[in-house]
């Protein structure tokens, strides 16, 4: 495997049983690589395999055939505990719905990701505040999730994902529930973090607003890579 690629997918196929011994093939012979600090997106209609691919890269699922190497680890060979460890340390997730823990404050939601890594209290607090500053929410640290807006909620979710400085960030339709203004604001924040932290970002989206920011767009259709296009710098928002 090329050591430059932090994600390498070789002939990845994913099939799901649908009963009576039959299978639905969600991904067919996918061959892709992603390098450090890429800002890429998987685009395509529903059922094209975007989320399945994110699942495999995020070690939430494993391929039926082929090999998925993430940070040098073969996803199919990881135990549940090893997969959890990989996500805990190296992979951040941003969901379509912000999925904050409602009983904890904004600060505690961000801090929680570090708590899972057994990081000491003072270091945890410093890093959590820094992450909130990245997304411009340091003043809302003591608020509960139900007291903040949708856009702010998504920024907290970004802070929670980025606080552990993961190598890979996986975002599933991160702007789907946001208005245009908030969507652009979120994408600018993510783009800034991509540059500042050298984190590889991989989106699953069909939102034009997101696509405008991508360096690379991979179109999927019926589980296959239809197009893999690096965006021209002049056409790209930053």
């Amino acid at each position: 495997m090329d050591s430059e690629h932090i994600i390498q997918l070789e002939h990845v196929t994913k099939k799901f049983p649908v009963g009576d011994g039959r299978h639905f093939t969600a991904l067919k012979d996918i061959n892709l690589t992603f390098d450090k600090a890429e800002f890429a997106g998987l685009v395509g209609p529903s059922g094209s395999g975007k989320t399945t691919l994110l699942n495999i890269i995020g070690s939430l699922d494993s391929p039926t055939e082929g090999k998925a190497m993430v940070l040098g680890k073969n996803i199919a060979e990881l135990s549940h505990k090893e997969s959890a460890h990989l996500r805990n340390i190296h992979i951040g997730f941003i969901f379509q719905v912000y999925n904050l823990l409602p009983v904890y404050t904004v600060f505690e939601n961000v801090e929680f990701a570090l708590l899972l890594q057994n990081i000491g209290e003072s270091e945890r607090k410093k890093a959590a505040m820094e992450a909130l500053e990245w997304v411009g929410l340091q003043d809302l640290a003591d608020k509960k999730p139900d007291k903040i807006s949708g856009g702010e909620g998504q920024r907290v979710a970004i802070a929670r994902a980025i606080v552990k400085r993961p190598s890979i960030m996986l975002a599933d339709e991160p702007t789907a529930n946001l208005d245009a203004k908030n969507a652009h604001q979120i994408m600018k924040i993510l783009k800034g973090l991509n540059k500042e932290l050298d984190t590889t970002f991989l989106f699953s989206t069909h939102d034009e607003k997101v696509m405008q920011y991508l360096d690379r767009t991979i179109s999927l259709r019926d589980g296959k890579v239809e197009k893999d296009k690096t965006t021209n710098e002049s056409n790209k928002l930053s």
Partner: peptide, 16 residues
């Protein structure tokens, strides 16, 4: 249910 899902995604093992 959702909270446990988030925690699994964040990298907490089922045993934890």
């Amino acid at each position: 249910y959702k909270e446990f899902g988030i925690r699994l995604a964040l990298g907490e093992a089922k045993g934890e």
